[in-house]
C-alpha cells in the first residue's frame, strides 16, 4: 500500500475553452481528498487526466511512477474507478455485474459475495440493476470499483440524486473504504459531504484551484461571524440589545438571532440570565467558503 498522486500544471483545452488551466496538487497515500467546484469548473476533466482517460495537453500527472494516460495494466489494477453515471451492463443482476467486472480484473469469483456484503446488497444479488433504487445502484457501482481491491479509488459525484438516508448510508461505506487504508478521491457538489468525509479539499473554478486545505482550516480562514439563535420569547428585545451591544439582532416570529464575532461573551451573558431555550449556535460551513470563493450568482 502507498501510492502518491502528483499533478503538476495540468492543462486541458476544448476549442477555446481552457477547461483545466494549470492545476497542481498532490494526494498522499491513504488520504481522503475532495475536489469541489461548480458545474464546469474542470473537476471531471482533472479527474479524467488522473484516471488515465485523457492525456494532459500540458503539465504532468504521476500516480506512483506511472503516467496514467499510458494505461499500463499494472497501474490500472491498483486503481478503482466509479464513473459519474452508473455504468453497468444492461439487464444483468447485481451479482452478474460484479462477476463480470471481477473477471475483467482477473479476480476470483469469491470476491463477489464479499463485495455484496460490504455494500449491503446481499439480498439484492439476484436483482437486475435496472430494478435497483438509486442508492443501491450507487453502492453497487462502488462495489464494482472496489472488486479488485484497489489502492486508489476515484468517486465522481457518488451521492448525486440520492435521498438523505441513502446519502448517509453511502457515507458510511465511503468512510470504511478510506479506513481500510485506501486513498479516496471524490468529486461532489455537496459541501456537507466534503466536510464530513474529506481530509483535504481543493475548491476549483474556471479550471483553476482556488484554495486547497483541510475543511476546518478553510472555514476558520473565512473568519465569519457566528449566529446565535433562541426560541422566540426567551429574551425580550431590550434585554437582547443590552447583551448584544453593537452586534446586529434579527428578531423574527420563529427566532431571535444575534450575529457576533465574540460568541463566548454573548453565551456567558445568556447563561447568566438562564435564557438558553431553543439555543442554536451556527458557525460558518464549507458551503460559505465555497460561495465566498465562487460567487453566489446563479449559473445556468
Amino acid at each position: 500500500m502507498g501510492i502518491e498522486i502528483r499533478a503538476d500544471g495540468l492543462v486541458m483545452t476544448y476549442g477555446d475553452v481552457r477547461a483545466v488551466d494549470g492545476v497542481t496538487f498532490s494526494v498522499a497515500p491513504g488520504e481522503f481528498f475532495g475536489l469541489l467546484g461548480p458545474n464546469g469548473a474542470g473537476k471531471t476533466t482533472t479527474l479524467e487526466m488522473i484516471e488515465g482517460l485523457r492525456q494532459p495537453m500540458a503539465g504532468t500527472v504521476r500516480v506512483g511512477e506511472h503516467e496514467p494516460w499510458k494505461r499500463e495494466p499494472e497501474l490500472q489494477r491498483r486503481m478503482g474507478v466509479q464513473l459519474q453515471s452508473s455504468s453497468f451492463f444492461e439487464r444483468l443482476t447485481a451479482r452478474e455485474q460484479l462477476d463480470t467486472f471481477g473477471a475483467l480484473y482477473g479476480v476470483a469469483a469469491g470476491r463477489t459475495d464479499e463485495m455484496l456484503e460490504q455494500v449491503g446488497l446481499v439480498d439484492k444479488a439476484g436483482v437486475r440493476t435496472e430494478d435497483l433504487s438509486g442508492g443501491q445502484k450507487q453502492r453497487l457501482s462502488i462495489a464494482c470499483a472496489l472488486i479488485h481491491d484497489p489502492e486508489i479509488v476515484f468517486l465522481d459525484e457518488p451521492t448525486a440524486a440520492l435521498d438523505p438516508q441513502a446519502r448517509r448510508n453511502l457515507w458510511d461505506v465511503l468512510r470504511q473504504i478510506n479506513e481500510s487504508g485506501r486513498t479516496v478521491i471524490l468529486t461532489t457538489h455537496h459541501m456537507d459531504e466534503a466536510e464530513a468525509l474529506c481530509d483535504r479539499v481543493a475548491i476549483m473554478d474556471s479550471g483553476r484551484i482556488l484554495v486547497l486545505d483541510t475543511p476546518a482550516a478553510l472555514v476558520r480562514g473565512l473568519d465569519a461571524p457566528v449566529r446565535i439563535s433562541l426560541a422566540p420569547g426567551t429574551l425580550s428585545l431590550d434585554a437582547a440589545r443590552e447583551i448584544a451591544g453593537d452586534d446586529p439582532i434579527d428578531d423574527t416570529e420563529s427566532s431571535l438571532t444575534i450575529t457576533t464575532r465574540d460568541p463566548s461573551r454573548i453565551l456567558t451573558a445568556l447563561a447568566g440570565r438562564d435564557a438558553l431555550a431553543g439555543l442554536s449556535v451556527k458557525g460558518a460551513s464549507l458551503e460559505d467558503v465555497f460561495l465566498e470563493l465562487t460567487g453566489r450568482e446563479y449559473r445556468a
Partner: peptide, 17 residues
C-alpha cells in the same frame, strides 16, 4: 451508443484489458 452514454466504454477503457 448505450455503452458510450452510460459510461461503460470509459469504464472498460480503465480496466486492465
Amino acid at each position: 451508443v448505450v455503452w458510450r452514454k452510460n459510461g461503460l466504454l470509459r469504464r472498460l477503457r480503465l480496466a486492465p484489458i
